[in-house]
Design a protein around this nucleic acid. Structure first.
Lengths: 146, 146
DNA sequence: CTGATCTCAGGGCAACTGAGATAT
DNA sequence: CATATCTCAGTTCCCCTGAGATCA
């Protein structure tokens, strides 16, 4: 009755927009994982996976301004999860890396299986769905990079 | 070298968290669609698809507090895209609906093909990928609802 | 001097909490 | 009275812009 003839692609676009907002709220609500924001979480993941990086590197990788990333990094330094050392070869740069405390924490939270999202993926998705989801995320990456 | 033995499910969880943040920034950056926020967009979509609803209905549907939704609705009323009429049967409730201006605008923006996200989906994804993506979004819905 | 990196200051906005007001 | 809906006020968080300072 409220009409939405709507080609399927348009429906997909609308659904995606709504979904991003809802997932953001849901993930924040179910924080845990040490009460990290999405941005903080992303930085720890990046440093853990790809090794030390500068604020600018991280900002580029996450698609945000260096000033914004700087604040995220500062909060992680304040809680002792990240530490920075001046680049010996280039005085402008500060190389950021995970502290031992961060590595310990990541391992502990994995062992404790305390991550809400991980639980959901494990319990509510079949093997095939998990694989499908992983593939879907790759496609979404492409949108974020577009 | 920076070690992440990492079962694939954990990788998926991390990737999803990062992705939500990146998509949010990307979508905001590429606003257009009439400069609506994700929440505003979601409300217009809901009202257009499911018909009139109250603030509380909308809040439940989007997973946010009524007070927050109230602000979103107020902004849409201020720009004349939504109007509210008191529920004749229950004086506490206000039924919200799209204005004719909103319907016109949605149709116009569809016709103009001016939506950034729609362009990306159309131009950078094959038919199969589009279908795969749509299916992936359903799985993500399940997470948001969990 | 130009350009890259980083910091400081200030602002906007989306969401939250808490405290009512009003109607059932 | 108890409950549901909605509003008002204040706060927090994330990210932005703009203006330097420092170093290559």
């Amino acid at each position: 009755m409220h009409a939405a003839p709507l080609d399927p692609l348009h429906a997909t676009a609308t659904e995606l927009r709504v979904l991003v907002g809802r997932l953001r709220r849901r993930l924040r609500e179910e924080a845990r994982t040490g009460d990290l924001s999405l941005s903080q979480f992303a930085v720890l993941g990046h440093l853990g996976r790809d090794g030390p990086a500068t604020v600018s590197d991280l900002a580029r990788a996450e698609g945000m301004r260096p000033q914004s990333m700087s604040a995220v990094v500062a909060s992680l330094q304040a809680t002792g999860l990240v530490h920075g050392t001046p680049d010996p070869g280039d005085g402008r740069r500060t190389l950021l890396a995970l502290t031992e405390a961060a590595r310990v924490r990541v391992r502990a939270s994995r062992a404790a299986r305390e991550d809400w999202l991980l639980q959901v993926l494990r319990e509510r998705f079949s093997r095939e769905e998990q694989a499908l989801l992983a593939h879907g995320l790759e496609l979404l990456q492409r949108i974020a990079d577009a």
